[in-house]
């Protein structure tokens, strides 16, 4: 699968980047950035203005932190992605703390601008509703299950990489993801009761 071959290239890049190769560092960040973006977006959701600005900011911080931490990274058989997502989860925790202190509620300004966006409000409502629903269901999962689903499905890590990032075995990741999926399926018809 492409994830493995990707990881192979990535380990070479990491080795070069750790020695201070500028181009390798750039390429490495370019490769991990989309995954970090999805991870941060999945965890943070949309910010008050309806865009992913907070998630983008955190992504930026994560990439920056990864670049700085490269020299500290030593290949001990752990995939680099595990290293990246450990950093990312720390950064997200920081962002969560600062967001908890923030009192901004910019909701009210939005609808006018939203109405002039590319597609009609109907489409936005529908699509976001679907995403919002799955988010809500995910919140009902245990922490580990949620993390596995996010890393596997949304970020696109392999079972092995996810296991390394979360300190589990790959087999355990597969079992956990199956349980999480089953749980989500059960929750689906029952959403009404859950939210009501």
């Amino acid at each position: 699968m492409y994830q493995e071959s990707n990881e192979l290239d990535m380990s070479m890049l990491v080795a070069l980047a750790a020695k201070g190769d500028r181009a390798a560092t750039d390429e490495l960040i370019r490769q991990i950035r989309p995954m970090v973006v999805r991870y941060c977006r999945a965890k943070l959701g949309r910010s008050g203005s309806g865009s992913y600005t907070t998630a983008e900011d955190v992504t930026q911080e994560v990439c920056f932190a990864v670049t700085r931490a490269l020299s500290r990274y030593q290949d001990k058989g752990k995939p680099f992605s595990a290293f990246v997502f450990k950093i990312a989860s720390h950064k997200l925790a920081d962002a969560g703390r600062s967001a908890a202190r923030s009192r901004t509620q910019p909701y009210e300004q939005v609808p006018d601008r939203a109405a002039s966006a590319d597609s009609g409000p109907e489409a936005r409502v529908l699509e976001s509703a679907e995403v919002q629903r799955i988010r809500k269901l995910m919140a009902a999962l245990p922490e580990t299950h949620r993390e596995v689903v996010v890393l596997r499905t949304l970020v696109g890590l392999s079972a092995e990489e996810t296991g390394q990032a979360l300190g589990m075995k790959a087999g355990a990741v597969r079992v956990t993801q199956h349980r999480a999926m089953n749980k989500l399926r059960q929750l689906y018809p029952a959403t009404a009761e859950v939210t009501a």
């Binding site: 008050g48 309806g50 865009s51 939005v110 529908l126 679907e130």
Partner: peptide, 19 residues
Amino acid sequence: LARPSKSSSIPSWFRLPFK
């Protein structure tokens, strides 16, 4: 899911700038 009346009070996260 959505009612027409909801579209007038769309929460912020519904905004999709370049769909």
